[in-house]
């Protein structure tokens, strides 16, 4: 099975690519519409600023392609900023809106929660949703790697597949039909992370 990893110049694609290969699929690192069409699933990674990322996706004419593919029920996994882009808006954004595939917004950690910002390091998964295909076999209390200052606030709470606690409880994994998103980095979360990527490859 071919899985597209969208390469739009926003951060790490090597670890994701290698992880997908390890899980038995063929990663296709691409920024071409037709190659996305030819893949069975899509991964949208991302590190950096929300506006820059959206601008790149638009410039490459990938924003509309991604939306179209998701509408056609192709499974999509957004990682970190790639997940945040799935939402409608972000507090980080000055002039761009997100893909709007998930309802809600992305907000910044507030200093009033009494925690250092960015949220950086290994933290537990809480409230792991039993039925979520992406998190199948992943138990609450397993730790994954986070590195971020913004987090999603889905308006539809049903899409939350797992939470994380960092002064505030926030949604760190989301699942809605064929749309999946994680705030943490599965490709950097050693065995647990690989399990999640394997789930995406095999079951989502």
């Amino acid at each position: 099975m071919k899985i597209a990893i969208i390469d739009y110049g926003m951060g790490n694609i090597h670890s994701v690519s290698k992880a997908i290969e390890l899980c038995g699929a063929k990663p296709v690192v691409t920024n071409k519409r037709n190659q996305l069409n030819a893949c069975a699933k899509i991964v949208l990674p991302g590190v950096g600023a929300f506006d820059d990322a959206m601008a790149e996706l638009e410039k490459l004419e990938l924003a509309s392609t991604i939306k179209e593919q998701v509408k056609n029920k192709k499974p999509l996994l957004g990682i970190c900023l790639g997940m945040q882009l799935l939402f409608e808006t972000s507090q980080e954004a000055k002039n761009k809106t997100g893909l709007g595939l998930l309802k809600g917004q992305v907000v910044k950690f507030s200093a009033k929660f009494g925690q250092k910002i960015p949220h950086m390091g290994w933290n537990n998964l809480d409230d792991v949703s039993g039925g979520c295909l992406l998190l199948n076999g992943v138990s609450a209390n397993e730790q994954v790697y986070f590195c971020h200052s913004y987090y999603p606030e889905p308006s539809d709470r049903d899409v939350i597949a797992a939470n994380c606690n960092y002064g505030v409880k926030f949604a760190c994994a989301l699942a809605k039909e064929n749309i999946y998103g994680v705030q943490f980095h599965p490709e950097k979360s050693q065995a647990v992370g690989l399990k999640i990527i394997r789930n995406f490859v095999e079951s989502c």
Binding site: N12, H14, E187, K188, Q190
Partner: peptide, 29 residues
């Protein structure tokens, strides 16, 4: 990045935005 699935930082002599971009895109956290 293609061989280990854990976060890592790269430093030493980084002086420009292009250096940073190249290293991040290559897979450093």
């Amino acid at each position: 990045a293609g061989n280990i699935f854990m976060p890592f930082t790269v430093g030493g002599g980084i002086s420009e935005i292009d250096d940073i971009r190249n290293i991040l895109n290559a897979g450093a956290e």
